[in-house]
Design a protein around this nucleic acid. Sequence first.
DNA 1: CGCACCTTTGACACTTGTCAAAACACGTGG
DNA 2: CCACGTGTTTTGACAAGTGTCAAAGGTGCG
Lengths: 240, 240
Amino acid sequence: MAEHPLIKQLSVRSRISQEEQNALLQAVGGTREIAADEEFIREGSIPSESIFLLRGFAARYKNTPSGKRQIVALHIKGDFVDLHSFLLKKMDHGVFAMSACTIAWVPHDRLREITERFPHLTRQLWLSTLVDAAIHREWLVGLGRRSALQNLSHLLCELFVRLSTVDEVAGYTFRLPITQEELADARGMSIVHLNRSVQELRARGLITWRGDEVTINDWDRLADLAEFDPTYLNLDVKSR
Amino acid sequence: MAEHPLIKQLSVRSRISQEEQNALLQAVGGTREIAADEEFIREGSIPSESIFLLRGFAARYKNTPSGKRQIVALHIKGDFVDLHSFLLKKMDHGVFAMSACTIAWVPHDRLREITERFPHLTRQLWLSTLVDAAIHREWLVGLGRRSALQNLSHLLCELFVRLSTVDEVAGYTFRLPITQEELADARGMSIVHLNRSVQELRARGLITWRGDEVTINDWDRLADLAEFDPTYLNLDVKSR
DNA sequence: CGCACCTTTGACACTTGTCAAAACACGTGG
DNA sequence: CCACGTGTTTTGACAAGTGTCAAAGGTGCG
């Protein structure tokens, strides 16, 4: 049970009945393979379906008129990447694949049907967008009030915890197919400074990072440095 | 019609039927006056009702263990300040009144009933949390990729537009009962630097700011400096 | 009129960004 | 199996933006 990545994700926070699971999975319109670096949702577009990830890493981002990029969210297997487009209509940002991805889409009119017929499931979908917002808030704290080093550490802690929930970690090691440039754009810093921060974490013995494999060598010290508190991820089953 | 601030806000994005309006307003449990600086939702608490503002300015914030504060959202008349607590359960941040406020609350079990019986209204409530998230994203861009001066300008533009939708502006003038310290915490900067940015905007003739009254003297230049694009506020009526 | 809170100023430190080049890694084709 | 090319990571030197500390001015309210 709960083999499907999307169901697995939702089940982290509330029990999803068999009927709801069926309704949701039957709403899926299809799947598609996406190459790394492909932008599969364009800023300014008005999608007629919402997309979730079956595999891979994706990022939501905004470009500024002056040519800078800020990544505003990172998504992993099982995440509903643009569920908000169902109601927001026009995309205020774009989404691209950081690694090769498999995506699945759910047409908006089927989502609407779900909201008409499955109130509890609707609340769970709503909840998943609320968790995205909670992550945004934590990132705001990071960008506004934490040092570059802390903020980078915080992201590594967050990714580790989130990847754990979808079984994408082995011990304290996980694949992170993300360039330092992308990481820098997620943390609102320059590549050079991000790189120096990575090396500082290495020098302190907190992480190992070779190729696209990251290992957290000392979780306690890393979480402490990052002031990481996973409350905002809402990772516990409650009746909602 | 649409006299109630909450209804007025929701009506900006989709038509709310009379029946829905009644359901929503009848769900209100009561109202209360809040003094400036009072924290009326505590971080870590598990509210049993959600609160919206009938009057005044409020802020959502997170404190870091090292004693810093980041304001993650600003709320005005008609905003549903912690609708997300309905599903998120535990507050990952606190909320305080920046000015004297009048609040109203809606018990969560009544919200749940609404989700069981009024799918369209549910979608509109969901949407209002999605707009909050869109604002978070724009703030992320500001904190990550814009200069202090741009970011301050951006906030002034945003507040002006949002206040317009609830008739709280007169021409290009509006009340802003917020200290510079609070503004600094919203922009992730120090008070001193925020103050210098305010003075820079004054020196450039873009704004006038005396006491708690702000006037935007040159909207075009201010919006241009801020790279302000109101798309993310989703201020147009659509069927959702 | 005086107190408390807010705003403003100055001097200086420090984190982070920028520019430019070198080193490295990996996939491709010979 | 090695040379090559492209993209990524790493370095160094320096500039710029922003933070910190401390004190002086303002402003409004009791």
